[in-house]
Each structure stands twice: as structure tokens, then as C-alpha cells.
Design a binder for these strands. Sequence first.
DNA 1: AGAAAAAGTTTGTTGGAGCAACAATTGGAA
DNA 2: TTCCAATTGTTGCTCCAACAAACTTTTTCT
Lengths: 169, 169
Amino acid sequence: MPPDDPNPGKPAVVSHGPMADELGFHLRCAQLAAFKHFAHAVGAVEGITPGLYGMLQAIDNNPGLSQSALAVAMDVDRSSIVKVVDRLEGKGLIVRDASPTDRRRYRLHMTATGARALRRIQDAVIRQDRVFSARLDDTERATLIALLTRLYRPDSETPTARAGIGAES
Amino acid sequence: MPPDDPNPGKPAVVSHGPMADELGFHLRCAQLAAFKHFAHAVGAVEGITPGLYGMLQAIDNNPGLSQSALAVAMDVDRSSIVKVVDRLEGKGLIVRDASPTDRRRYRLHMTATGARALRRIQDAVIRQDRVFSARLDDTERATLIALLTRLYRPDSETPTARAGIGAES
DNA sequence: AGAAAAAGTTTGTTGGAGCAACAATTGGAA
DNA sequence: TTCCAATTGTTGCTCCAACAAACTTTTTCT
């Protein structure tokens, strides 16, 4: 116990003051908790991160995607994609398929084992997601998703479809 | 335009498939957007990150905090705190005050300029936070904060007070 | 044909976050 | 008291993610 603690009975913990009214603060805390939960429940088993999982989903739902398009979709630099694709390809989850019409381009595809792994991981993620949000009933959960979506997606056309990255190319 | 694109008219963008129903995904997207918004609106001006801002608030709201307590509160390693405190002290925002009763410990305090800077930054953050959540009315905003809070804080005693880090020391 | 742009890659840098080890100091147990 | 364990701050190291710049090859535009 700290000798300088003026109130030994109180929690002696950081009060976050005016940040309690800032949405960004709670967003940060919740996302941090979600990340930890993910890492513990899925990452420890499958050796994957939310980012990698998102990339796998992007490739699976958009076969033949180019690395640049994936970079735009994931909102990271092209050069950052290389290592990721290397890793996923090294694990045998995806393949770099040479485009027959554009010899610069690779078409990213899932392998059979990759598709199987993704299905397995996805089940784990969905299960983990439900555990993480267990304190919310279905209505609250849907409300939360809707509100979050309106935060980061200016146009809320289809509630459950594409995301807010435009790579019409 | 990619020669392999089967539908040149459509957005040709990543559909995120089943992730649309995962709360963690939307949490991640929203937090990423909030971080970027923060960096653009506040970080570019004050040269600060949400994490640094949180530390400043923690020190300001808990004067005399030790570095270890700050580390626990911020949920990072003690060694990571050193560089941060170095930076904040180098900027003249805080000071390492030697504890008179425990010669190992430093008591972190805001300087006058630090307190002034924090007030200025806080105003910018609050303004930025309102802009970021402009698509939500007050009720929706409060609902969102309440739902987020229940995600990462198991015990929801006071709705607007301390946060979920326990450092009873 | 020649310039401009795009796709993928390499290299280097930055920054954050963690772990292990350390000196100084404090607290408790024998 | 003496000695051992725990705590505090610190340094050094590693790892990893992300960006920027430069470069090669290829395609597209003029």
C-alpha cells in the first residue's frame, strides 16, 4: 500500500474524469477488451488476429482479389500486405494465382484447407463474439451494431453487406 | 480497371460476409475510425494520441500517482510507462516528484503548463468527439456509451465515474 | 513510341508493447 | 537484528505492425 495514499479505504484507482463522457474513450476500452477476448479465445488456439481473420474473410468472400484491392479494403499499405499474404500462403491457407490477363497481378484464392480452416475459425469467432457480448440481449446487441455502423459508415444503405471501402478501380 | 473483374459496374469491393453479424468487427471498424478522426483533429495539432491523452487524464485526476499504478491503470507494462513519462516530462507537462516516504517511488504531477495544455487538449478532444458522433443524437449517443460500458465493465455501478481497472494497491 | 500509372516487392525507419534482468529500496520473517 | 522476498523504476532486448521511398515489371494512355 502506497504511503502517499490519502484514502486507504477507497479503491485508490484512477478515476478517468471527463473521459467518461467521451464516446471515443469507451470505444477504445471496449475494443481493447474485445481484442483481448479474441486473442484469448481464438488467437491462442488458431494463432490468428482479428486483422488476419478479416483478411481471410475478404479473400474468401471476394475470390480473385488482388493484393492492392485487399490493401485498400483493409486500409493498410500495399507493402504491408506482402508479409501477410506470405504468412497466409506459407500456412497453406491461400494461394497467389497469377492473373492470365495481367501479368503484374496476383489473384488471391483460398485453398481447400484454407476454406476449411476459415470455417473452423469463423465458428470459433462467432462463439467468442457471443460470449463477449453475453451481457447484452439480442435487441441490445443489434442496437449496438447499428449505432456503431452509423459511426464509421456514412452511408448506411444495406445494413448487412459491404463495408465502407471503395475500390472500384 | 482490372481485366479479371467480372462486374465492371458493381463496386468490386470487398464484401465482409458473415462478419457483418459480429460485434467485434464493427467495434474494430468504429474504433479505427475514431482513432483516425482523433489523429486528424487532435493528434495533428497537439501531437498526442488517445493513449497519451488517457495518461494525462489519469495523472491529472489522480495527483501523486506512481508509475506502477499508472501502468496498472493503463494496462501496460511498467517498462512501457518509462518512455511515456519521459516524453511527457520532456514536454514539460508533468513532473516526477520524489516521494518523501518511499525513495523508490515517484509521484507524478501535472505542471502548470501541463494542466493548461490538458485543458486545451481536452476541449479539442470533446469537440472532436462530438463531431465524430454527429450522426447520433444525444439519446443514441448515451445508449451507445451505456452499451459499450456494459461490454468491458462487468460491474456497472456508477454509470459515469471510474473505469474498469482495478489497482487497489 | 514514349510517358504515366499500377502491381508487387524490397529496404529502412519508426513506434509500440512485451520480457528479462538489474540496482535501489522497502517490508516481513526467522 | 539479519536475511530473504517483494516492490519501484530503469535499461536492454526482441518482436511485430505499419508506413514511406525506391525499384522492377507490366499495362495503359496520349
